[in-house]
């Protein structure tokens, strides 16, 4: 019958499209895609393991430098983490072993980042204007007078 042939043709075409689609989909769509939404769920775990943490936090520094940490914790810089002025822990220790010396920046620039008086800082925050400070000259190391780990103001 003429109409049956037409029906068959269209159904056959549809079937071919569906088969091509599902075969193509299996190859093109990553395994975990759509598990929780229109994205590749495996990537969440990949992001969680993308690299080991670089910063360890002051407590991890205290594992070896307990005395230092105690001194810092008692002073005006108690909220300043070791890694703020030095460097991320991962540059110094990896897998529990020391791999390099921790950088020690003695420059004026380091202290100036927080304590130079500039437009923008909260007024109550301790800041200095170099010209009015001990006749200071740019480049003089603050830490010649101020102990960085427990500064007296």
């Amino acid at each position: 019958m003429e109409s049956a042939r037409h029906v068959f043709r269209v159904l056959f075409l549809l079937l071919v499209v569906v088969v091509i689609f599902s075969v193509g989909r299996t190859f093109l769509v990553p395994k975990s895609y759509g598990a929780y939404g229109p994205y590749r769920f495996d990537n969440v775990a990949e992001q969680a393991a993308i690299r080991p943490p670089q910063h360890g936090g002051s407590a991890s520094c205290g594992a070896c430098h307990a005395e230092r940490l105690k001194a810092v914790a008692a002073g005006a810089h108690r909220r300043v983490g070791c890694e703020v002025c030095h460097a991320p822990l991962a540059r110094h220790v990896q897998d529990g072993a020391r791999i390099a010396a921790m950088p020690v920046d003695r420059s004026f620039t380091l202290c100036a980042r927080c304590h130079r008086r500039i437009e923008g800082r909260p007024a109550a925050f301790p800041q200095i204007v170099l010209a009015q400070h001990q006749g200071g000259v740019e480049g003089t190391a603050c830490i010649d007078c101020h102990a960085p780990h427990s500064p007296k103001l």
Binding site: A48, P52, H55, G57, V80, V84, P88
Partner: peptide, 23 residues
């Protein structure tokens, strides 16, 4: 920014929060 997903999934804070000296 990923809020340091590789840190927060281990119970650590994002690096920026870890170092911020003023809270």
């Amino acid at each position: 920014c990923t809020w340091c997903y590789h840190r927060v999934t281990k119970g650590l804070k994002p690096a920026c929060v870890e170092v911020c000296p003023t809270g």
